[in-house]
Design a binder for these strands. Structure first.
Length: 305
DNA sequence: CACTTGACCTGTCCGC
DNA sequence: TGCGGACAGGTCAAGT
């Protein structure tokens, strides 16, 4: 999926479009893609959208109308409501597409032979709002998920609690990065960056780009890095993510923003998916190897040992 | 314990 | 044109 810049782009788009909307119904086309009590979503109002690492959260205020009317009136205050959160993880091929009341044709093509009409054959969950607009969760490979959780359950999601610092926020310093990376002394640096407890939200594309920005060979072991390297890597991660957000994220095959539009960061990438093409700095052909089971791109000269 | 590999799925692309 | 295999943005579990 989408890594941090892609989810951030979707978040920003959704914030302007769905906050304030009320869910009328939900349609689950693939049971494994949705976990939680669908009934709680009826009449729930969207109060906010946030991102943590590669996870998107949609905050909801439920009206609790699913309860037995008489009981709920006796045991709860008349205006009692329940805060809940819809968590989305897009994994490798997930998409979140919003279709407003006025849009006719929208994007979000999972394969090039599709028209962009929603729903399509990779649509797994559909959220329908009271004003007629809809939110589609598409996921070709079915690795992604949507979970409806209470505030208590949200606080207990171990995946979220174990995440490392957000790379674009204050708490992310090169010293923290160094400290977290050193938990994997004997691991190639590029693999260690992918560990979400080291720094959150950096996936395969940006791990490659960050190593290039820092001029560090991806196979170099963490224990071999100097403080100067950690500093360059820290800045390299920030630069890669920031530039990508500015370009609307990376679209290789599956990524589209909430409006069905592509992102253009890969046009600006230095190494990712550029095997055999000349390095944009020194013209040396970019090489591709496999590290930790993932395709890894680098310039053998700029990132020489 | 540190680290690596396979599994989860569907689709595309490339070589024969 | 068809078939088999490798590969794809992530995370978890089981293996060494």
């Amino acid at each position: 999926m989408p890594e941090l810049p892609e989810v951030e782009t979707i978040k920003r788009g959704l914030q302007t479009k769905i906050v304030g909307l009320t869910i009328k119904s939900i349609e689950v086309l693939n049971p494994k893609s949705f976990q939680g009590d669908e009934a709680l979503l009826r009449d729930a109002k969207i109060t906010g959208v946030w991102r943590r690492a590669k996870v998107l959260g949609i905050e909801l205020e439920s009206s609790l109308r699913g309860d037995t009317p008489k009981q709920s009136r006796q045991t709860r205050s008349p205006r009692s409501s329940l805060a809940m959160t819809l968590l989305f993880h897009l994994k490798m091929s997930g998409q979140i597409i919003f279709q407003g009341t006025k849009s006719t044709v929208i994007g979000g093509h999972p394969t090039k032979d599709m028209t962009g009409e929603m729903p399509n054959k990779s649509t797994r969950v559909i959220f329908k709002f009271s004003d007629g607009s809809k939110l589609y969760f598409n996921d070709q490979r079915k690795f992604g998920w949507v979970k409806l959780v209470s505030q208590e359950e949200l606080a207990a999601v171990s995946f979220l609690n174990l995440l490392g610092p957000e790379p674009l926020e204050e708490g992310f310093t090169w010293q923290i990065l160094k400290q977290n990376l050193l938990r994997h002394k004997n691991v190639p640096i590029k693999v260690a960056i992918l560990d979400q407890t080291t720094v959150s939200g950096v996936g395969n594309i940006y791990a490659c780009e960050a190593c290039f920005n820092a001029k560090i060979h991806p196979t170099k072991k963490v224990s071999q890095l100097t403080d100067k390297d950690f500093q360059k890597l820290h800045q390299g991660i920030i630069d890669a993510l920031t530039l990508s957000i500015a370009k609307g994220g990376s679209s290789k095959q599956h990524y589209f923003n909430e409006a069905g539009e592509k992102g253009y960061f890969l046009d600006f990438a230095f190494v990712y998916d550029r095997a055999g093409q000349p390095c944009k700095v020194c013209q040396t052909p970019i090489e591709k190897i496999k590290l930790g089971g993932r395709g890894t791109y680098f310039c053998p000269i700029c990132q020489g040992y």
